[in-house]
């Protein structure tokens, strides 16, 4: 179970423990957290929703892509759903590899791919309203019908 959608707070160490391997010389951990201010606009809290069965499959696909591209790598990803407050952990990605450069690179690849292909959505709640992100003026437009590289610099 290296790829999970969780309704409960993520145990960061448990995600890291999944990628421990004797061949590894490095483990990188990415922790995505809920930011209060986006372009000066204040977020009160977020709701994350997932198409869970497909989301797990797509996380597995990302892991398979990484293990093919970076030899000897091992990946674990857990994404939270439900209501999250400011500073809460939304996603944890752990990648172990024999050498450190690959661990950094592969981890970055994972978060960018999540923002492209994993069916998870966040609803921002502000002081003056709420909106699903990915389709509104507050974020990027997707003229091709799907997120592109370069849209994903949040």
């Amino acid at each position: 179970m290296n790829y999970e959608i969780s309704k409960e707070p993520i145990n960061i160490q448990a995600v890291i423990d999944k990628v421990v391997q004797r061949e590894a010389g490095a483990i990188t951990t990415f922790i995505g957290t809920v930011r209060e201010l986006t372009h000066g606009k204040k977020t009160l809290f977020l709701i994350y929703e997932a198409y869970e069965a497909m989301a797990v499959k797509k996380l597995e696909q990302i892991g398979a892509e990484i293990e093919q591209r970076w030899e000897g790598s091992c990946v674990a990803i857990t994404h939270r759903v439900g209501r999250l407050d400011i500073t809460d952990v939304a996603v944890v990605i752990a990648v172990s590899t024999p050498h450190r450069a690959d661990a950094y690179e592969a981890n970055r690849y994972a978060i960018e791919r999540i923002k492209e292909i994993v069916p998870i959505w966040k609803k921002e709640h502000w002081e003056d309203g709420e909106s699903w992100m990915g389709n509104q003026l507050e974020t990027v437009a997707y003229p091709s019908g799907k997120p592109e590289a370069g849209d994903i610099d949040e």
Binding site: H79, K115, E116, P119, I120, W121, K122, M133
Partner: peptide, 10 residues
Amino acid sequence: IAFIPPVSGG
């Protein structure tokens, strides 16, 4: 079938 709006996880 599922209709998938532009995703915003992460």
